[in-house]
Amino acid sequence: MALSIVRLGLRSVINFERNAAVISVTSVPKQLKLIHTKPACNGSVCYLADLPRDSELRSDRGSALRRYSKHHGRPEEDRRKQSDSDSDSDSDTECKGYDRTEFWRRKMRTVHNILDVDKDGLISFNDFILFAERFKSLGHLTNQQAEEFTSIIKLTWEEQWGAIDPYNFVTVEQYLEDMHHVLNDKSLKKRAYRWLPYLFKAVDKDKSGFISVHEFKLFFKCLGLDNEKAAVAFAVIDVNGDGKLSQKEFVKLGKEFFCTEDEKKVSKMFWGPLIH
């Protein structure tokens, strides 16, 4: 009789532990939308644990796993080595080396804020598409130019931030790190600004090959900035005072904004007032 009681007690303990394990496994929350932090890598795929950002997801309990592309999962040391080995020797960039000035970082934060069209603090592929649609909606691009613009925007995202999926987001710090990498990689740098001519063509309303201050205001409107800021910026970047910018000047200013750390360059006004 005593032996039967002992066996019954052991069976109860085993069943209790088994049920607890099942509850533990099934209570893991579903995959949620997270922001970039330091990922942990496992082969070609990287994961991280964090709390959901969006308010509508905060009711879900616990932490969740987020998938990252191999590009973002690459350890910082390896990325630094590749940046050094691919360092661009072209004279149009002044941001050599791994460290950046606070001035350059302010400029990158400014662009991140512009590309964050829905203003949720993160850049997504959807933001990129919304950004392109603002310029296309002006109606000054031909059908072919509009298609090319969309294709280039898509390709730029894939080359710089990997997969197009609803869980791929770029924080401010991630954007700064990735732009540093782009500027020190020859192949990426040459392709990173190929969408700038389409911005010019989209605001060149009269198709004259030049944009006036009024057309530059269209550019700032698409960036989400007001006319007053556009007028001030145009007065600064129009260094020869002829009241117009050619496509070559426009693209040069846009590229220089990303590449230079010289605070005296007028290109610092190209994307509007710098944020802190």
Score class of each variant (00 low, 15 high):
M1W: 14
G9D: 08
S12Y: 04
V13C: 04
I14R: 15
I14D: 05
I14H: 13
N15R: 15
V22A: 11
V25I: 15
K30H: 11
L32T: 00
I35Q: 14
I35H: 14
Y47T: 11
R58Q: 15
R61A: 12
R66E: 07
K70N: 11
E76H: 12
R79Y: 00
R79C: 14
Q82I: 15
S83R: 09
S85V: 01
S85F: 04
D88Y: 01
D88G: 03
D88C: 12
C95A: 13
T101H: 12
E102G: 06
R106W: 06
K107S: 05
K107T: 01
H112N: 07
L115M: 11
K119M: 04
I123W: 06
F125M: 06
F125K: 07
A132C: 09
S137Q: 01
L138K: 12
G139H: 03
L141S: 04
L141A: 03
A146V: 01
E147G: 15
T150S: 12
K154F: 08
K154A: 09
W157L: 02
I164K: 07
P166N: 05
Y167F: 14
Y167H: 15
N168W: 13
F169D: 11
V172N: 02
V172K: 07
E177Q: 13
D178M: 12
H180I: 00
V182G: 00
K189N: 14
K190N: 08
K190F: 00
Y193Q: 12
R194V: 06
W195D: 10
W195V: 14
L196V: 06
P197F: 01
L199I: 08
D206S: 10
K207R: 14
H214F: 08
F216W: 06
K217S: 15
K221G: 10
K229P: 00
A233E: 05
G241D: 03
G241L: 06
D242H: 01
G243M: 09
K244H: 12
L253I: 08
G254A: 03
G254H: 01
S267Q: 02
G272N: 02
